[in-house]
Design a protein around this nucleic acid. Structure first.
Lengths: 188, 188, 188, 188
DNA sequence: AATGAATGAGGGTTCATTCAT
DNA sequence: TATGAATGAACCCTCATTCAT
């Protein structure tokens, strides 16, 4: 039997450095920043990044994983704690928007169909689509919203509304998403 | 001394060729297609394109000018012919969406803050913002919609919703924009 | 009607510069030398090389085309002028060896199966295989040599014997090829 | 104080693992396969390989040592058992070819002048050159072959003929070597 | 002694843009 | 005025090899 790998503690610390560096660069240059810039920020060779994160999608996922998970987990909680399913949906979407709006370039990349971001796309869908579907279904069942809107389309629409949300003070993605969600409401 | 007119006619014909070529390439490869591809399609050297259209924004503007103008002009007309200002706004937005959705990559570039698209941004705003403002104001004045939404934000939000609208059958930009506009409506 | 492209003269001169530079670098560093080195030798940007010669195989072919053609054309001439077909074959092979032995790394690359040299392989075969076949057949018909040796195998064997022929004074490719050709002779 | 022997046994077993792994990888990916692949196959860190075999040449030598030794030892035996020295030479060369032809990439590396394979080159020469010289001399003394061919050149020529012998069904290295040896024969 | 993480030098390739003809 | 050749900056990615644990 083999003892747990001793280097692991070190490597994990290093990985943390990498993620911090990537996060910092993502903020200033967007998630498509050159690998070299990230490596430089981390004080590390480029290959080190490739070792830890073979594709850019892997890196992006790792950087945002905690927040995506938190968002996913918030769905059922909100459903349980909110007055109505529609209120839960609305709040959950706001969480998603709060997340996206602060991630320079992420929303843009999320809708890019360029191969290589496939994993990223898949990850977000994998984690968030079921949650969104659940909330949407609940709100439809309660009769609060029109039915017939795909959770996929909604997520993507919300994501799109977040593109370029920073870097333009005249553009208020949160407000627009609010309107979109308001528009979902079944007219009386 | 040289006659000025005949040259002008020549140049204009040449420019037409360029625009047709660009339009064709934009359809197949998006508005960020390599300059070379466009030049090749036009049967022209790359420098010729730069002479006529110093920046890519200039070229894009020229290609879509007619349609943008038409869209701008449709605003007042719709306002005059529609039952209510809100109906006019809604139809006008739909016109804009119909335009954007069919222009591969245009919506994406419209929100790009990368210098070099500044002109493009400015042109669209210059032509469409007044129209949108007028429609929005009219609808606000009539009491049909909530006030407080900037025309700039609306235009940009609609533009964003159109990103990637082709190339993904599961995503329906028109529907989402409809919801957004529905959300504008003042709740009773 | 359009006049012949005026730039062509210039470009051709430049191409000559490129070929000379490539040839020079091939001599010192072999035919697999970095594109950048060749560009530097030519005093040219790397992309210039790619413009003229999209793949490395194209460049190699261009550098050696004249000599390969000359070799190919020498075949029938030798057949006509030599005392016997076997003598012609022997002299032709010697020509081929003389060519290869002075081309650092070419023989090695000729037998490389790494994709990307496919074109090169094909070119050599296309030009030289028919000639070699003709000579081999003639010598077989005359009864001078054993039959049953494929021209392809012969060419490749000769090529292989030329690998590393420069850079090692103790190795005499010409002598070995002579022995190989001698071995072809039908024993009495 | 530490006992020396038991460690030694351990190390030797470890080395065996390494050699087996290297041999396996050499078969599938050739003798220039990435160090990492070999380490992975052995279930070992890369540095472990460097500790045991500082250069790739050392590793290759170790992998094939037994077969090279066997080949070397076969020389005198063949000389003793064969009808004539020439027959012995011929059979010995065939043994060498059989060895080389089945070692993916070995023949190619044997003639590489890239520093780092110096050891390898030296080892093969050290073991095989005396044997080949002895056989060649004997055959020359018996009057069966032309004299004047260096054993070094012969070995290297045979090695070259074996390059790429696998991976191309149209190329028959054994046949060509046979012709080369036949060519050595003194003409009557 | 073994590990496997980190290093960083290379090499290939693509365009936007300039410039000589 | 038109041309299209040349430019060269940017990026990505792969390993051989070293080094801290």
């Amino acid at each position: 039997m083999r003892a747990a790998r001793p280097r692991r503690a070190d490597a994990r610390r290093n990985e943390k450095t990498l993620l911090d560096a990537a996060a910092a660069i993502f903020v200033t240059s967007g998630v498509e920043a050159p690998v070299r810039d990230i490596a430089a920020e981390a004080g590390v060779g480029t290959a080190t990044i490739y070792r830890h994160f073979p594709t850019r999608a892997d890196l992006i996922i790792a950087v945002y994983r905690h927040q995506v998970e938190a968002c996913a987990e918030a769905g059922p909680a909100l459903l349980a704690s909110s007055a109505t399913p529609y209120a839960a949906l609305r709040q959950w979407i706001n969480l998603f928007v709060d997340f996206l709006v602060t991630k320079h370039g992420l929303a843009a990349v999320l809708q890019s169909d360029s191969a290589g971001f496939g994993n990223l796309h898949a990850y977000f869908l994998d984690r968030l689509l079921p949650v969104c579907t659940q909330l949407l279904d609940a709100a439809a069942d309660s009769g609060e919203i029109r039915s017939g809107l795909d959770a996929y389309a909604l997520l993507r629409g919300v994501g799109n509304l977040c593109i370029g949300a920073d870097s333009d003070p005249r553009y208020d993605a949160r407000r627009l998403v609010e309107l979109l969600i308001a528009g979902l409401r079944r007219p009386r």
